[in-house]
Design a binder for these strands. Sequence first.
RNA 1: GAGCACGUAGCUCAGGGGCAGAGCACUUGCUUGACGUGCAAGGGGUCGCAGGUUCAAUUCCUGCCGUGCUCACCA
Length: 894
Amino acid sequence: MEKSYDPAEVEGRIYDFWISSGLHQSEITDSAKVFSIVIPPPNVTGSLHIGHALNSTIQDILIRYKRMKDFDVLWVPGTDHAGIATQMMVEKDLASEGLTKNDLGRDKFLERIWQWKETSGSRITEQLKRLGALPDWEMERFTLDEGLSEAVRKVFVDLYSQGLIYKDKRLVNWDPELRTAISDLEVEQRETQGNYWHIRYPIEGDDGLSITVATTRPETMLGDTAVAVHPNDPRYSALVGRNAVLPLVGRKIPVIVDEYSDPEKGTGAVKITPGHDFNDFEVGKRNDLDIINILDERGYVEGDVPEKYSGLERFEARKAVIEDLEDGGFLVKVEQTVHTVPYGDRSGAIVEPWLTDQWYVNAVELAVQATSCVERGDIRFHPKFWESTYFEWMKNIEPWCISRQLWWGHRIPAWYGPDGEIFVATNEHEAIACAEKHYGEEVTLVRDPDVLDTWFSSGLWPFSTLGWPQDTEELGHYYPTSCLVTGFDIIFFWVARMIMLGLKFMGDVPFKDVYVHGLIRDAKGRKMSKTTGNVIDPIDVIEKYGADALRFSLAALAAQGRDIKLTFPVIEGYRNFMNKIWNATRFVFMNLEPGLVYDSDVDNSHLSVPDRWILTRLNVTLGEVEGFIENYEFDKASQALYHFIWDDYCDWYLEISKFSLYGEDDESKKTTLNVLVRVLLRSLRALHPFAPYITEEIFRIFGEKGINLPESEGLSSKSILDAQYPTPSGAEMFKDESEQVELIKGVVTGIRNLRATMGVHPSEKVLVHLNSENDEVENILRGNLEIILGMASLGDCIVCGEDSPGKAVSEIVSGVEIVMPVENLLDLEKEISRLSKDLAKVSQDLKKTESKLANRDFIDRAPEDVVEKEKGKLEEFQNHKKKLEEILKKLSVV
RNA sequence: GAGCACGUAGCUCAGGGGCAGAGCACUUGCUUGACGUGCAAGGGGUCGCAGGUUCAAUUCCUGCCGUGCUCACCA
């Protein structure tokens, strides 16, 4: 083995091994234990960013863990066609050739996107492999696959026939750049510096009389059809019922009363533009106002407006309108203001409310079940507080606009007859048949040109990927899926829609748990973005530190409910951890004599005290790790393993094992070797979901060593992934010996501390006295002398003997007095000051405990074990204090 | 405006009614035969502030201050 672990050499080879061994594949058995996950499908256009790395690492941990626990495991991978994003990308590509999509036409354009998808669409899945993610690649799906498209059509037709999908003419968020409708969720509100323009509208038939309104979008006045005032606003009551004359246009518009008008805001009179403002649209409906559309799909002025403005781009029109208002003396004043402006999240263009025909899903209706299933606990969010956010959104849910004026996506399965009659069907044949029945003759149908919102198809992902609407074996076996791992940014976009549609079409929740992880941020806590230039590319990290180091870092940082600040020093630290494991293995191999390893279980009666301690620590850790993973506490799970392996196994057990391995006692050596090997192998198995590559590689090398271990150690498996996940064994928990070792560790640390403070060179074999008045403690010290001598590198150690008469330094640890004679080295004053500090501390502790125990209420009301513990502390502190005082007394005599 | 989080060591963060923890950074020592991507020892905290509950509060409750996120409104 090399001196350092080299991930680059290992990872590709190991991944190929997993695939060629078919370890990624799911297999339906009659086992009752089933665990399934569907990947949140990344955009097919995308490349792996660090957020995907976190998301996939967590899923891979769960999948590997459950697989090792003998579950029927399925992880479905795949990608999303990402309507707008993909179409934009290919359009940009075309633009560089001086072409637009219209030059190609719909069919050719789609052909081109498919072509692109075939050549570059697999990039992100290839990158997932680098991370070590092992979904069932045979199950890979794409949202535009035929099967998934069939699911989309069926859902559309069914919802339509139930009235849950309908076509409606109302205002939508219109993206003039992309020239499509978008949903509320795709609109981003941004704070923007803008103006209030106060505009005076003259009152008809009364020179000098006027009403002033304020607006941030003056060009919309071209479409005004009323001015509204509050019914209780005395300032304007005289004007109600009269007409205002719209400046620049000349149209007479009524002054009406409507509760919407807020006397506190602006001038208290508000212009009403039902065609271009969501609130005004409602006012218009209530008051039966005309709706005047003044914009085309590009955001250029058109329609029933003065010719002067027709054809102007909307912001050009704004300028012109303001200028003319000013010239005409209608502009009363301009006020600076900060207000929020809606932008399209993809295009970055300012969105316009625009009156169009669009398809909607009645989300309010679907939200009822979707809310109650979470209330009932059929779906649990982790961390739980996301449920509040989910409920909040579901409570205020609006109709979901699902049609998009794009070409790339699932085309809406609706056809129109010559008179506009709508025929919704899963295919054209059916639509034609329906039409024939309706008209009594054959007619030509025109298909709706629009496609569906991308989230419509991804909302079906948990069951469409499993074969629905076919009644497949996978669907029956793996639905509902066990867990969904996702970021909070798509809870509404995606998670909520899956829940609504899963309940509707499968009659059951799509997943039982939703694990919501945080967002990865840079060292300063900023979002990572290309424009800020602070992105960490996971592939770069993998190349520099290895996939395991990246995965382990992400897991270790994944505390629930918190974003992750990812920094290189942390990744480096876990890279070092991988190297540590590598070198611990090297140590074991250096001492490995295959013939000495038993092919049966170790006889407990042969185990030494340290053996029993490390086995206990291992089993405690395994129990913790199991609980943590089941609770999605990956940070705690990974850190428990980290500390066990590094602190317990490497820093203590492995060092202690040397006394036995390099000693004369063959029987002891044999047992130690067995424990070393077994604890390592079990640790590796426990670690495998977190660090799959290095654990598999070491496992492989172990396999080459020709040692025979019992089946339960899993070494006979072809892959570590095929071995059992280690479970804690009660038979290997030794409380007494564990406490002994903890005591010894404390004493050793105490001795090392004395050496360090006295500046005794590490190689100098000094003498130490250990004193205790407790027989049991004395026995423990005597029984573990070899460890104390070796670990503290002592020349000799006298337990409970006569103290040497000369100068010495001392320390008390767990009631054991450590005395180290130092003859010439002693700085008396320093030593007294050091011990006095200890004395002050222990006196304070003692006082606190004494007053607690003197408190009647404490004795009466505190639980018994707490009181007992306090009494124990009292004794310990008293003892400690007494000893310190004695030592100080002796020192002052010297 | 509404909702949800978060304020703990220099930094990043765990924790949790009963003696405050980790990693990194820092200081000191170390060619100990697995590892300097290492070993050993150490310093460092009014647990945001103020009340309340409790025998006991850093932990639970209330308020305040500060930070972040989400949604809504903005004539």
